[in-house]
Amino acid sequence: MNLWNLFVSFAKVGVLTFGGGYAMIPILEREIVDKQGWASSEELMDYYAVGQCTPGVIAVNTATFIGRKVAGVPGGIVATAGVVFPSMVIITVIAGILSNFADIPAVQSAFAGIRVCVCVLIFNAVLKLWKAAVPDKATLVLAVLVFVLSFFLKPSPVVFVVFCAAAGILLTRLGVRGK
């Protein structure tokens, strides 16, 4: 019964999360803390914070944390399945419909307009992340270096992730951090 509740609750969170990120916090707060009492607000913030700095989608990471707390490893898996389920259904339906209309000129014009908007949305996302991610000169150099090399050389992003994690540790040990 607990597992079914977990699935339904996180499916709700999945449906109500528009765009992810911080938009998800009030919805989690209502469903998980207030209604179900599965975690306290503080625990939720902890999960969210760790979910942000571990690999993967933050919503999924947070769901796994809470699911595990409520019902062990199966709980973690079921909560994750719940949070991704609405996405899978909704996107599959939309993708199926759109692929039939993709050749219509009006649809192509609409998407050409939308792509312009996507540029602006990504730009805004980068600016927002920049504030938290680039506090000093060393991180400024890292960010610019990754940006330039990634755009021109197009290697697998894995290369940068591994290199930057190592650089972070090295720079901290060298005492460059915060200068």
Partner: peptide, 12 residues
């Protein structure tokens, strides 16, 4: 320390 390096990487 690793995340100190990973955050600017993500932005880039």
């Amino acid at each position: 320390a690793a995340f100190y390096g990973l955050r600017p990487c993500s932005v880039g």
